[in-house]
C-alpha cells in the first residue's frame, strides 16, 4: 500500500520575477479609473494617500477554504476583533479586496478560489495561512490537494504555522498593511503581468477547465 501518488505539479522554483518594470508605486487601478498622465510629485503623494486608505480598510472575502478558517471566527468576533484594524468580512468577492486562503486547497476548491479571486476588483491581495499553502503541509502526498499556492495565485503574505493563531493572523494583516502602504504588495499586478504563466499552471492541475477568461 505504499503507492505514492505523483501530483501533477508544475516545476518548483516559484513564479517568475516581474518581467517588465512595474507601474509607478500605487498607480491607480480602481475599477474604471483612467490612468491619466500626472506630474510625478502629485502622483506620488496621491499614491501614498491612496495606499494609506487601502491599507486601513481591508475587506476580506468570507470564504473559508480550509481548516484555517476556524481561527478566522475568533478573529472576526469579539475576542480579537479585527474590525478595529479596519478589516471587515464581506460576503461577496465583488466587495472585497483581500482573499484569505486558509490552508490546503483541494483541486476542486482551487477552481472556485481562482474564480473568486478573478472576480475581485483590483487592487487585491491574497493572504495565505498555514503550512499547507507553503509546501503542502501534512497533505503533501495527497492526490487531491495542491502543495504550493503561489504557483497558481499570487500570494502577498504567508502566515506560517499549523494552524496560525488569531494573534499570528493579526501580525500577518499588519504586515500586509505595511506592505500595502509601502506599495510592495503588488501580487495582483504580478498576476496580471504573468497571467500566461499562472494560467498554464492552473490548467495543468485543473483538468476540467471551464473558467471564463480573466478580463480586467
Amino acid at each position: 500500500m505504499d503507492d505514492k501518488i505523483v501530483k501533477p505539479e508544475p516545476p518548483l522554483g516559484g513564479p517568475p520575477q516581474g518581467s517588465r518594470p512595474h507601474a509607478p508605486v500605487g498607480d491607480g487601478c480602481f475599477l474604471g479609473e483612467e490612468m491619466k498622465p500626472q506630474a510625478p510629485s502629485y502622483k506620488e503623494a496621491l499614491a501614498r494617500i491612496k495606499n494609506w486608505f487601502r491599507a486601513n480598510s481591508l475587506w476580506v472575502m468570507a470564504y473559508g477554504t480550509g481548516c484555517g478558517a476556524i481561527e478566522l471566527r475568533p478573529l472576526a468576533t469579539a475576542r480579537f476583533d479585527m474590525e478595529r484594524l479596519g478589516i471587515a468580512m464581506r460576503p461577496t468577492p465583488r466587495q472585497s479586496n483581500v482573499l484569505i486562503v486558509s490552508g490546503y486547497l483541494a483541486v476542486k476548491s482551487l477552481k472556485r478560489v481562482i474564480r473568486s479571486y478573478e472576480q475581485m476588483p483590483s487592487p487585491k491581495w491574497i493572504v495565505a495561512l498555514g503550512s499547507c499553502t507553503i509546501n503542502g503541509g501534512m497533505y503533501w502526498d495527497s492526490y487531491n490537494t495542491i502543495n504550493r499556492l503561489d504557483l497558481y495565485l499570487p500570494v502577498d503574505v504567508y502566515i506560517n504555522g499549523c494552524m496560525p493563531r488569531p494573534e499570528a493572523l493579526v501580525a500577518g494583516f499588519q504586515e500586509l498593511m505595511r506592505r500595502i502602504k509601502k506599495g510592495e504588495a503588488d501580487g495582483w499586478r504580478h498576476y496580471m503581468e504573468n497571467l500566461d504563466w499562472y494560467k498554464e499552471n492552473q490548467k495543468k492541475i485543473i483538468t476540467d477547465w471551464d473558467l471564463p477568461e480573466y478580463n480586467w
Binding site: M1, K4, T65, Y104, A106, S109, Y139, D141
Partner: peptide, 23 residues
C-alpha cells in the same frame, strides 16, 4: 462536496500508526 477532500483514509494507509495520529 469534495472541496475539502484530502484523502485521509488513503494517507493513513501509508503512514505508521503513530504518524496517523496527527492526521
Amino acid at each position: 462536496v469534495g472541496y475539502l477532500h484530502r484523502a485521509f483514509e488513503k494517507l493513513m494507509e501509508r503512514r505508521l500508526y503513530i504518524q496517523s495520529f496527527p492526521i
